[in-house]
Design a protein around this nucleic acid. Structure first.
Length: 911
RNA sequence: GGAAGAUUAGCUCAGUUGGUAGAGCAACUGGUUUACACCCAGUAGGUCGGCGGUUCAAGCCCGUCAUCUUCCACCA
């Protein structure tokens, strides 16, 4: 690593001018790992700081959201380390019940043509574990590629033996507390995964469908009532027609009977408040087995439940052979036609409504009555009170706006359906007495009292006479294990040091799934919050604003990006564009026949390259770091003092941004300082100090200043771009033993007891003047000319000290101070804070073009003058605005006036 | 139906107690001056979504409308 830059001094041409990140990044990650840099010591005396990673799905692959999310965590962790804290960033993966099981089932079907039932539960689980063993490392290695400084020796998995034991124990405890119960309820059923889902796993999507208006004849033959439904295929399951008791149209009908048109039978017309008068015809067919609202109405009115569907969504109704066995959607059309054929259809309308889709399988869910386990959430009140939008809250949400969302959900908590009809997951620790198992399965609900009766057994281990018991085949919702993540990943000693964790970084899309539930689990099982701060990251969208998703194929592979641009560049780019609050739009320009372009990542890559080249520039002047003494610091040229003052300001700005969790602002500040202040201004100003005839003492002070700035800057940038900063800190000799990542960051001011004000104003005055003189040259198309001589009229004779620098910055032959200079009329001039510069250019001026230019300049100035004068002539402004604001305005006016007078003079001279 | 956020240069976005609008990319002009063409210097481009209000002064505060995004609830 050191060789490369050393070679640089000997022959620049042999050294790549562009930074090549991949090799450097891999090398440092390996070094860090081998030297235990990421390891957390629970016995350390240092203040503890911890983060638990939001565990990615064990079979998942890295997407940009992960990169952003984990970069932020890495920044927090690395920064805490450099502040001298004992840091534990605890990594791991989630077994992701449905997602993983689905993948393995698919593979089994494709490769062996078998279903999981063909091979049985044990054999299938073996396959899943095999899959986990081969694929589980992928995302972990991808996180490592990013440079994530997790304590990888502590990696956990939600199906680890001891973790599973805790999950099971929690189930047992909550059951014994009466919070977990089993009941026959209406749940969201996924007909593809063949399992129940929690409300949170159902995604409503607007869908166009047909609204069938069906006539139900009165039993006495005196007419009919029309109901509107989107689901004619469930007519056989109808047990009533409901109307609103307040609806005058149907008041007379209540209590009458109508005939169900398919599988005919008389059913009652009943009254229920839940029926909307305005929708459809105001009459609703009640199918308690297949709709949540119908189920409730059925319960209120003691109606029968007729289930007409198989679990897989096909019709289960042999009495109607035309439909029996058909898929629900096929049956829907068929039923519509049947009804039409019998003249029962009044009309069919196009209709758009929300249909609940299964999050995983992406098919419409089926409301279905089934026996499931439910949880009444614990510690609700405490958990709700704890979350606040200010820094002094027990748990602080950032951005604060998510508090509202959280509170709204907490105020409307529904019991959590925690059982899943899957095999992959933590199996429900409940056993049923074998001879009674069938009865118990039929029982409407199970709770504590059944435990006392000895018919069921709930415990960590199977009952002693195991052969007489049958275990509940279902497993728990994946989130029922994830909600314990902040503490079940730690043992007692680790918890003592690192619980509660400091920051949780996650997406706002899992605020209900995970964050809220972890808070409740934390209070219930640890008597304490699980984390102090929750930072919700932006979601990353594509160019068109769509969420990145695998099915859309709109997510670039972060691994490709890191191979092309470097992990540091990808990290920096994402951080820089991720605001506190809103989402990110990630740009990707397709290039025909080439690699796609990513303008935002370019910026990060370019920044790394800029940094690398700035370091190369320093190395070309010698490889030994130069230390400045306190005396040196007092005797620096203004440019040097200025850049150090800006460095001190940068420290303050960055610290402030971190306090507010404004990471993009941190990135922005670092970028602007380094590129704008350090490279564009300071380095350009001091280049004269490296010329052959330069004063060695001046060169020494300059090198010392460069080293001071670079050393500090690399440390500041390290959390964002860990690899390149570690590399350069070492090659530059700023870190001679150990690692930058393990060193403490020195945030004390560089300039102590040194008044930098005059230096800064002088330097800025020179930089500002240089910019104006460049403009002047550009106006006359003389940018390339280095042989220009200027005449300066000024009262500040001492500015001549800075002429060499000005000459370098602007590209000038020489500057002469001559206060007696009488400019020939029309001489191009520029008024600057250093004085008036004149650029005599005999015969170089195109009169016509110049006249035009001057006139347009004057018009512009006139507009400004009018604005400014109007403002200053307003007595209210003078009276009420702050004095300094008025002063600024007056100075501005004076400046415009002077400029205008000058331009007019030039114009006059041209004629 | 309820809630949150967004609307600023061609694009992506900054703009934190109200005081003459900024960056990067793209465009245009010029430049291989020995750190960097992944660069440098310069130019152009915006009645800050519309309307109203508060104020001496509004991108910023208030009201209202429009468009977009997301979340929650949901009418079969």
């Amino acid at each position: 690593m050191q060789k490369k830059l050393v070679v640089a001094m000997q022959g620049v041409s042999e050294l790549p001018k562009a930074y090549e990140p991949v090799e450097v990044e891999n090398k440092w990650f390996q070094q860090w790992t081998e030297n235990g840099c990421f390891r957390a010591d629970e016995n350390s005396d240092k203040e503890g700081y911890s983060i638990v990673i939001p565990p990615p799905n064990v079979t998942g692959i890295l997407h940009l959201g992960h990169v952003l999310n984990n970069t932020i965590q890495d920044i927090l962790a690395r920064r805490a380390r450099m502040q001298g804290k004992e840091v534990m960033w605890l990594p791991g993966t989630d077994h992701a019940g449905i997602a993983t099981q689905t993948k393995v089932e698919k593979k089994l079907r494709e490769e062996e043509g078998k279903s999981k039932r063909d091979i049985g539960r044990d054999a299938f689980l073996e396959k899943v574990w095999e899959w986990k063993d081969t694929h589980g490392d992928i995302i972990i290695n991808q996180l490592k590629r990013m440079g994530a400084s997790c304590d990888w020796e502590r990696e956990r998995f939600t199906m680890d033996e001891d973790y599973s034991k805790e999950v099971t124990q929690v189930f047992v405890d909550l059951f014994k507390e009466g919070l977990i119960y089993r009941g026959k309820r209406m749940v969201n059923w996924c007909p593809v995964s063949l399992t129940a889902l929690s409300d949170e796993e159902v995604i409503p999507k607007p869908r166009k469908s047909k609204l069938y208006f069906i006539n139900y004849a009165y039993a006495d033959g005196s007419g009919h009532i029309t109901v509107a439904t989107t689901r004619p295929e469930t007519v056989m399951g109808d047990v009533a027609v409901a109307v609103n008791p307040k609806d005058p149209r149907y008041a007379d009908l209540i209590g009458k009977e109508v005939i169900r048109p398919i599988h005919p039978a008389p059913i009652p017309v009943i009254a229920d408040e839940a029926v909307e008068i305005d929708f459809g015809t105001g009459a609703l067919k009640i199918t308690p087995a297949h709709d949540k609202l119908d189920f409730e109405i059925g319960e209120r009115n003691n109606l029968e439940i007729i289930d007409v569907l198989h679990p897989d969504g096909t019709i289960n109704f042999p009495a109607v052979p035309e439909l029996n066995g058909d898929d629900r959607f096929k049956a829907r059309n068929k039923a519509g036609k049947m009804l039409e054929a019998m003249g029962a259809i009044e009309k069919v309308e196009e209709h758009e409504n929300n249909v609940g889709f299964s999050e995983r399988a992406d098919v419409p869910i089926e409301p279905r009555i089934s026996m499931q386990w439910f949880l009444k959430y614990p510690a609700q009140e405490e958990s709700q009170k704890a979350v606040g939008d200010t820094a002094d809250a027990e748990i602080t949400f950032r951005p604060a706006q998510w508090c509202k969302t959280y509170n709204h959900w907490m105020n409307n908590l529904q019991d959590w359906c925690i059982s899943r009809q899957l095999w992959w997951g933590h199996q429900i620790p409940v056993w049923y007495k074998k001879e009674k198992a069938f009865d118990l399965k039929e029982k409407e609900s199970l709770d504590l009292s059944d435990l006392e009766g000895g018919d069921i057994f709930v415990g960590l281990e199977p009952p002693a006479d195991g052969e007489n018991w049958a275990r509940d085949p279902d497993v728990m919702d994946t989130w029922f294990s994830s909600w314990l993540w902040p503490f079940s990943t730690m043992n007692d000693a680790t918890q003592k040091k690192f619980y509660p964790t400091a920051d949780l970084v996650t997406g706002y899309d899992i605020i209900f799934f995970w964050v809220a539930r972890m808070i409740m689990a934390g209070y219930r099982f640890k008597g304490e919050k699980p984390f102090r701060n929750v930072y919700f990251t932006s979601l990353i969208r594509d160019k068109q604003g769509r969420k990145m998703s695998k099915s859309l194929g709109n997510s670039p592979d972060p691994m490709d990006l890191m191979d092309r641009f470097g992990a540091d560049a990808v990290r920096f780019s994402l951080i820089k564009i991720a605001p506190l609050g809103g989402d990110i739009r990630f740009l990707e320009n397709e290039v025909k026949g080439g690699e796609n372009e990513y303008p935002q990542v370019d910026e990060g890559r370019n920044f790394a390259n800029k940094l690398y080249n700035a370091a190369r520039f320093r190395q070309m002047q010698g490889t030994e770091p130069v230390m400045l003494s306190a005396e040196d610091l007092n005797n620096l040229p203004v440019f040097h003092t200025t850049i150090l003052a800006k460095l001190d300001q940068l420290t303050l700005d960055v610290e402030k941004s971190y306090t507010d969790y404004r990471f993009s602002e941190v990135a922005q500040n670092l970028y602007n300082f380094f590129w704008g202040e350090y490279c564009d201004l300071f380095l350009e100003a001091i280049k004269g100090d490296f010329k052959k005839d330069a004063d060695p003492e001046a060169t020494r002070l300059t090198l010392g200043t460069i080293d001071l700035v670079l050393k500090r800057f690399l440390a500041k940038l390290h959390p964002l771009m860990p690899h390149i900063t570690e590399e350069l800190s070492t090659t530059m000799g700023y870190i001679t033993k150990g690692f930058l990542m393990k060193s403490l960051e020195d945030n004390s001011p560089v300039l102590i007891g040194i008044d930098s004000e005059i230096a800064v104003s002088t330097a800025e005055s020179i930089y500002g003047t240089a910019s104006k003189l460049r403009n002047l040259k550009a106006e006359y198309n003389l940018v390339t000319r280095k042989d220009i001589s200027l005449i300066l009229k000024t009262q500040q004779e001492s500015v001549s000290d800075h002429f060499p620098v000005l000459g370098i910055l602007v590209g000038l032959e020489k500057i002469t101070i001559d206060n007696t200079y009488e400019a020939e009329k029309g001489t191009p001039a520029s008024a600057t804070s250093l004085g008036e510069f004149y650029m005599p250019l005999d015969g170089l001026i195109d009169v016509k073009a110049e006249t035009k230019r001057l006139n347009s300049e004057i018009t512009k100035i006139d507009n400004e003058l009018i604005k400014s004068e109007k403002k200053l002539s307003n007595p209210n402004f003078i009276e009420r605005a702050k004095p300094e604001v008025v002063k600024v305005e007056q100075d501005r006016l004076d400046e415009w006036k002077a400029k205008k007078a000058q331009l007019e003079e030039m114009l006059a001279s041209l004629k």
